[in-house]
Computed example of a mutant assay.
Amino acid sequence: MNLALWIVAGLLAVVFLVSSCSKLFMSKEKLASQPGAGWTQFFSAGAIKALGVVEVLAAAGLILPAALDIAPVLVPVAAVGAALLMAGAAITRFRLRDKLIAVDLLYLALAVFVAWGRFGPESFTG
Results as ranks from 00 to 15, higher is better:
M1D: 10
M1H: 07
M1E: 13
N2S: 14
L3F: 12
L3C: 00
A4K: 00
W6G: 01
V8Y: 09
V8R: 07
A9L: 07
A9Q: 04
G10R: 08
L11C: 08
L11S: 11
L11A: 14
L11F: 15
L12F: 11
A13Q: 02
A13R: 03
V15S: 08
V18S: 13
S19Q: 04
S19F: 01
C21D: 07
K23M: 04
L24N: 07
F25I: 03
K28H: 11
E29A: 14
K30H: 12
L31G: 02
L31Q: 05
A32R: 01
A32N: 01
S33D: 13
S33N: 14
A37D: 01
G38E: 09
W39K: 10
Q41A: 15
Q41S: 14
F42V: 00
F43Q: 03
S44T: 15
G46Q: 13
A47E: 12
I48W: 04
I48N: 09
K49V: 09
A50W: 10
L51G: 14
V53F: 11
V53Q: 03
E55W: 08
A58Q: 02
A59I: 13
A60M: 11
G61W: 01
G61A: 07
G61K: 06
L62A: 09
L62G: 12
I63Q: 01
L64W: 12
A66F: 04
A67T: 09
L68F: 15
L68G: 03
L68C: 13
L68V: 14
L68T: 14
D69P: 00
I70S: 01
I70T: 10
A71D: 00
V73M: 10
V75P: 03
V75F: 11
V75L: 12
V75W: 06
V75H: 04
P76I: 14
P76S: 12
P76L: 10
V80C: 05
A82G: 07
A82M: 07
A83M: 01
L84N: 01
A87Y: 08
A89L: 05
I91M: 10
I91L: 15
I91N: 02
R93T: 07
F94Y: 08
R95M: 13
R95V: 03
L96F: 02
L96Q: 14
L96I: 02
K99G: 02
I101V: 15
I101R: 08
A102Q: 11
L105Y: 03
L106C: 11
Y107A: 04
L108K: 09
L108S: 05
L110I: 09
V112P: 02
V112C: 14
F113L: 13
F113N: 07
A115P: 10
A115Y: 05
G117K: 06
G117M: 07
T125L: 15
G126I: 07
G126E: 10
